[in-house]
């Protein structure tokens, strides 16, 4: 926002706001819109961004609501796929890691479903993609496969979207211990993939992509992160009516 010439009023900690005094999200938004032209909200509760959008008369951008959605990440993910693969249509896309709680996965699956993809959901049963998403894919007649084995469809993939097993999303720390480090994309894995297969990751990563992958032509995750800046700038300019 500052690079666009705007200013930011906000807070990184809700404890310094009236939320601490028990103010509702609705009221916080009603107050904030008096001072701002656009609201960007990242909130741990699912559906918070939608409620904020209902409360506000100014544009609201969802910067991530719990494990539900992360639409701006999806926009930069789509941009990265278009840039690195020169197309969005008809791609074979794998998702690996925490597909249950991974909001970037949820949003990207819905967005890519408009481009005739084939999906490969790679996760243990307990972290598999929620049924509501596969129901939607079934209705749209989109082909998808579920597996716990990272290598099973390695040769098919045009893009592999890797996600972190998110410690903070597990209600039980013991459950996290069970799954951490379960998948690792490394040079050995890359021996079985298409030459132009791209690896993406919403970052931060822990140990799911080995550092040795960074210098290969497969790594697209730092470019992906960098794409976040122009994409989010454009989004702000669009909702503020500065570009059409």
């Amino acid at each position: 926002m500052e690079q666009l010439g705007g200013t930011v009023i906000g807070f990184s900690n809700a404890n310094v706001t009236s939320i601490q005094k028990g103010e509702s999200l609705w009221d916080t938004i009603k107050m904030t819109e008096q001072y701002a032209d656009v609201i960007v909200i990242r909130h741990p509760l699912e559906g918070s961004a939608r409620l904020a959008a209902e409360a506000a008369s100014i544009p609201v951008i969802n910067g991530g609501d719990g494990s539900n959605q992360h639409p701006t990440q999806t926009m930069l993910d789509l941009y990265t796929i278009q840039k690195t693969k020169n197309r969005l249509d008809g791609l074979h896309i794998g998702f690996v890691g925490d597909l249950k709680y991974g909001r970037t996965v949820h949003s990207l699956v819905i967005a890519l479903s408009h481009f005739n993809p084939t999906f490969y959901f790679i996760a243990p049963d307990d972290l598999q993609i929620p049924e509501s998403y596969t129901d939607e894919l079934f209705q749209k007649k989109i082909k998808y496969f579920k597996t716990a084995d990272l290598n099973r469809f390695a040769k098919e993939l045009d893009v592999l979207y890797v996600t972190r097993i998110q410690k903070e999303r597990f209600p039980d720390p013991l459950e996290y211990e069970k799954f951490k480090g379960i998948y690792r994309v490394d040079e050995q894995f890359l021996q079985n993939v298409k030459k132009d297969m791209k690896i993406m990751h919403p970052l931060p990563r822990v140990d799911e992509i080995d550092k040795s992958v960074d210098n290969t032509s497969h790594a697209a995750y730092f470019e992906q992160a960098a794409n976040g800046i122009p994409v989010r700038k454009i989004l702000l300019a669009l909702v503020l009516g500065r570009i059409k």
Partner: peptide, 9 residues
């Protein structure tokens, strides 16, 4: 049914 807010079915 699907929740309008959290989108959970």
């Amino acid at each position: 049914i699907k929740c309008h807010y959290c989108e959970r079915s």
